[in-house]
């Protein structure tokens, strides 16, 4: 459990009461990665366009979405970020409170991070910890300390 905690750092986790819509959710969730120069604004547009084109299948489990795109050119450095909202945000008919942005640089490098994420979210109690948006608890969880 090391890769994920290297990508999803404290300054990349945000919590808000609500956002205007799922598009804003993705935009806000990804903003720390624009600020720290991991991605360009283009990548945000690509992630939103992917949901418009392919639907809300990035909602991997109840209330948890993994916005991402191919990232060719618009991702400078592999990274992840998270926005948790208290209110449920409608993403084309599916409710979302957790926006976990994935910015991959290729098709393979992020496999281990996703494996860790998948293993963590397999347990409902862990999903509940992420849903609190408490960055310290989330960091403990992804570091394997809970």
């Amino acid at each position: 459990m090391k890769i994920l905690s290297g990508l999803l750092t404290k300054d990349r986790i945000q919590k808000l009461t609500t956002v205007a819509c799922w598009r804003t959710g993705i935009r806000v969730a990804a903003q720390p990665l624009v600020d720290d120069d991991s991605i360009t604004e283009d990548y945000i547009v690509e992630m939103i366009a992917a949901v418009d084109k392919f639907g809300p299948y990035i909602v991997l489990i109840d209330n948890f979405a993994l916005p991402h795109a191919q990232g060719t050119g618009s991702v400078k450095r592999m990274a992840m970020s998270l926005l948790v909202t208290e209110e449920k945000i409608d993403m084309r008919g599916v409710p979302v409170t957790m926006f976990m942005v994935l910015a991959p640089t290729d098709k393979e490098s992020h496999v281990q991070a996703l494996k860790e994420l998948s293993d963590i979210l397999e347990e409902e109690k862990n999903l509940a910890i992420v849903a609190t948006g408490d960055s310290d608890k989330i960091l403990d969880l992804i570091k394997g300390k809970e």
Binding site: K53, F54, L66, H68, K107, H110, L114
Partner: peptide, 16 residues
Amino acid sequence: VCGFGVGSSMILKMSL
């Protein structure tokens, strides 16, 4: 399978 073959489909692969 997902739109790009990078993120969601990798998660689906693990679940399968």
